[in-house]
Simulated scan of single mutants.
Amino acid sequence: MTWKFYDFDELTAAELYEMLKLRVDVFVVEQNCPYPELDGLDQKSIHLAYKENGRILAYSRLVPGELKYGVPSIGRVIVSPEARGRGLARELMNKSIGFIFSEWQPEAIRLQGQVYLKEFYQSFGFDPISGVYDEDGIPHVDMKLDKEGCPNSSK
């Protein structure tokens, strides 16, 4: 059972395939949402994965600030269906937030959250900064976490 941060070039072909397959299986197939999953940001992002028995069960993509919003963002937050309910999503978010604030030291972090997860993200200190909008057929809201409002920003 291990958590690991990867630069894109550190990923093996098998790891990249497994990450992309998990993303497509959940975001495209499970959520019945055809959209362009491969968006050109993976190559410059940090990838956080949790592996158990050689399988990736949780994953997030940490996007540097200059690529999307002017501040770093967390995206593609995912836990495999068979691993849900074990607290992996909470641990994944804590590790993602901790990495960004300690390694990149920004003033804030952003994310685009599905509306049904708004309270989950608020539990980490994220605040909505947009109204609800449709993103590929799913209601989303933009959210922001300011460094001074984050209890684990020093991690």
Rank of each mutant, 00 (worst) to 15 (best):
L38F: 11
Q43P: 03
S96Y: 01
Q31C: 09
D127C: 09
S154R: 06
Y35R: 12
F8G: 00
C150F: 04
I138N: 09
L38Y: 08
P106L: 07
L67I: 04
T12A: 06
I100L: 15
I97K: 10
L11I: 05
S123G: 13
R110Y: 11
R86N: 12
S96K: 09
L62H: 00
V29L: 09
Y35L: 11
V79W: 02
R84S: 08
A108W: 00
L48V: 05
Y6M: 04
P139Y: 10
L38P: 01
Q114W: 07
V71M: 08
D142T: 08
Y59A: 14
G98R: 05
W104H: 14
E15T: 02
G113K: 10
G131W: 05
P106F: 04
E30N: 02
F126A: 10
R76Q: 09
Y116N: 14
D136E: 12
F99I: 11
L92E: 02
F120M: 09
K4I: 04
F27N: 06
S80E: 10
D146R: 14
L92T: 12
K155D: 12
E10T: 00
Y50Q: 07
M143F: 02
D25N: 07
H47E: 04
P139V: 05
D7Q: 14
I109D: 00
Y6Q: 00
M93V: 15
Y50H: 14
D7M: 03
S102V: 07
G87C: 11
G40P: 01
M93S: 12
G40W: 01
K155V: 15
Q105W: 00
P139K: 10
E91C: 08
L20Y: 03
P81S: 06
F8T: 00
R84W: 10
K144V: 12
M143E: 02
F5L: 14
V28H: 00
W104A: 11
L38S: 04
R23H: 03
R86L: 15
K155M: 10
E135G: 01
K51W: 07
F124Y: 09
Y17P: 04
G113Y: 04
I78Y: 03
E107K: 14
I109H: 04
K68E: 11
D7V: 03
K95T: 08
A13T: 13
K51D: 04
L111M: 15
G65K: 08
D136W: 11
N152V: 14
F126G: 13
L16Y: 12
M1C: 07
I56H: 02
Q43I: 11
K44F: 04
R76S: 02
K147R: 15
I74Q: 00
G75D: 02
E18P: 00
Q31S: 08
I74Y: 04
R90W: 06
E37G: 05
